[in-house]
Design a protein around this nucleic acid. Structure first.
Lengths: 140, 140
DNA sequence: CTTGACTCTATAGTGGCTACAGGGATTCTA
DNA sequence: TAGAATCCCTGTAGCCACTATAGAGTCAAG
């Protein structure tokens, strides 16, 4: 069974352009071509594309996906690297969560400075944003 | 008092290239020039740059910052738009927090599938990533 | 007079796609 | 069998907010 690009895109929940992009990035093998020069994919290539999409849904960067694909091709090797890669991804996600937490706090604090019914000249939000005291505490 | 670009960059905690970039984006007024063609900034321009950096530290997009700068130039107008802009930013941050929460859960679940001491052929993580069951529940 | 720190412009790269433009292939309908 | 609709092709440029580089010029200190 062979699929054309639109079909693999649909079956792996991404756009046609994205499939071509992955090929260009070397994440997908160069596919066979039909007589009319259309890309033709088999089950294994569809599987690989789905693997990539699954990784991307976990926000794993393309470089890391590349490493995972290499690991997959070496079944006898130890999988410690894979575990480490996922641990690092979890760390990245947690650290982003922390910054967002902090960010939210600052934004809510800023928001509380104004009721929204002022002329901009006395808007607490604009004043808060102009004030460098909270952003650069060392400066005054 | 006039500052050269390196100084305003230092005083507003960003890189020299970033200052030039903001100028190019029209977020900073075109500065005066010295006889040797160096950019020269005054206090007010430094203030505006700090305002921008403060907004960026809250992850407010440049387009929104542009709107805030315009509002600042119209002190008599009502500040409802500014409040709405911040509310939208809070919404964006909260929705990103939620996706990260979800992401973390999935990654931790995936991580639990392997001890890290297997050959890659039986690594639970690789198997989990190859499995489309969790990512495309509708498909089987 | 040279060194070194600073600045200038212009251009390209980052990540992960997305969106054209301008054509060819295939398939469906009349 | 003609024409239309839908797919597909390559190549290039755009998105965001910078960052980095090349190759040159400016300026103050020693």
């Amino acid at each position: 069974m062979r699929y054309r690009i639109g079909e693999v895109a649909r079956l792996s929940d991404c756009k046609v352009e994205t499939v071509r992009f992955y090929e260009q990035m070397g994440l997908l093998p160069v596919p066979a071509r039909s007589s009319g020069n259309f890309r033709l994919y088999n089950e294994s290539q569809l599987g690989q594309l789905r693997f990539i999409r699954h990784c991307r849904s976990l926000d794993i960067p393309l470089e890391d996906i590349r490493r995972l694909l290499v690991s997959q091709k070496h079944p006898e090797e130890n999988c410690a690297d894979i575990n480490q890669l996922i641990d690092e991804q979890i760390d990245r996600v947690e650290s982003r969560m922390q910054s967002l937490q902090q960010l939210r706090k600052q934004l809510v604090e800023l928001r509380s400075q104004c009721s929204g019914k002022m002329p901009t000249s006395s808007c607490g939000i604009l004043q808060g944003l102009s004030d460098c005291a909270c952003h650069y505490p060392a400066e005054r």
